[in-house]
Simulated scan of single mutants.
Amino acid sequence: MKVLQFTIPVAQDRAVIVQEDVMPHFYPYLHRHREAQLIWIKEGEGTLLADNQMYPFKKNDIFLLGANQPHLFKSNPAYFEAESGLKIQALMIFFDPNGALAPLLDLPEMQLIKSFLHSTNGGLRVSPAQTDLVIQKMLTVQYAKNQELIIQFLQLLNVLTQLQESSEPLAVNSSATFSESEGIRIGHIFNFLMSHYDRNITLEEVADEAHMTPQAFCRYFKKHTRQTFVAFLNEMRVNEACKKLTSGNFENISTVAYTCGFNSLTNFNRVFKSVMGYAPKTYLESYFKNIKS
């Protein structure tokens, strides 16, 4: 049996670590690391789970994840199919604001950047209108060496600080207080739900996966995610529905509803509106209107 870790060590012992991955799919397990992570999705599609918040990701999305923030990049199911030919590619910059960089961030002149890193410990997504600028800065860091790398990295942080107001926060109240065992257990539950959201999942079934009684599971899940099991599962299903609706690969909204685990179109419309704030048809019209504009 593969032994999983919740806290993953980042390989290289440097103040700023630049890593580019090209793989069939992302690492499909909830995890954290002491370093903050800036990631540019160069190729690939799927779902980001940051703490208990879900976001679809696609090519050219950029996310900043806080130090020790539990997260999971789950590639779409097609990426796990044998001989699919699909791949993910991502450029990542890791840095520990509480490690080797701490004395630098403690300088009086660095207080705006330090405050930015503290206030965004729950993560953020860079506005699509600003991704080209951030990509340019990330590439500059990637190809810099020695002291030039630190200089370019500080310029990158300065840009992110200036773009904070236009960026979207991921998890306002970060729940990065999981113990190792709790993180592994919650990660197992999340992975089970993400693998089976498209069918009926009973409370008894998921509680059994967690080796708990249904009552104990409900208390445990609410305590560690600040959401009920049903609310979390509904949000997951709506997130998947949004991706399918905007892909253009489905004939109608009803088909999307049933392939995302909803047992009726009426229930899908009700849940979708409660999560997104508007009906699926309105969401779809707004999405394609923005694409064309």
Score class of each variant (00 low, 15 high):
2 K>L: 11
2 K>T: 11
4 L>A: 11
6 F>W: 07
11 A>P: 05
12 Q>K: 12
12 Q>T: 12
15 A>Q: 09
17 I>Q: 11
18 V>W: 01
29 Y>S: 10
34 R>Q: 14
37 Q>D: 07
38 L>G: 04
40 W>D: 00
42 K>Y: 03
45 E>P: 03
50 A>Q: 08
53 Q>W: 08
54 M>D: 07
55 Y>W: 13
58 K>E: 12
64 L>N: 01
69 Q>N: 03
75 S>M: 10
78 A>E: 13
79 Y>T: 00
82 A>E: 15
90 A>E: 04
100 A>Y: 13
102 A>S: 14
108 P>K: 06
136 Q>I: 00
137 K>E: 13
144 A>Q: 01
150 I>M: 14
158 N>K: 10
158 N>V: 01
165 E>P: 00
170 L>D: 02
171 A>H: 08
177 T>F: 15
187 G>S: 07
193 L>R: 07
197 Y>I: 07
200 N>E: 14
210 A>D: 09
220 Y>P: 03
227 Q>I: 02
227 Q>A: 09
235 E>L: 01
237 R>C: 06
237 R>A: 09
238 V>E: 01
238 V>F: 03
249 N>G: 07
250 F>I: 04
251 E>W: 06
253 I>V: 15
262 F>H: 09
272 F>Y: 01
275 V>L: 08
277 G>Y: 12
285 E>I: 11
289 K>N: 15
293 S>F: 10
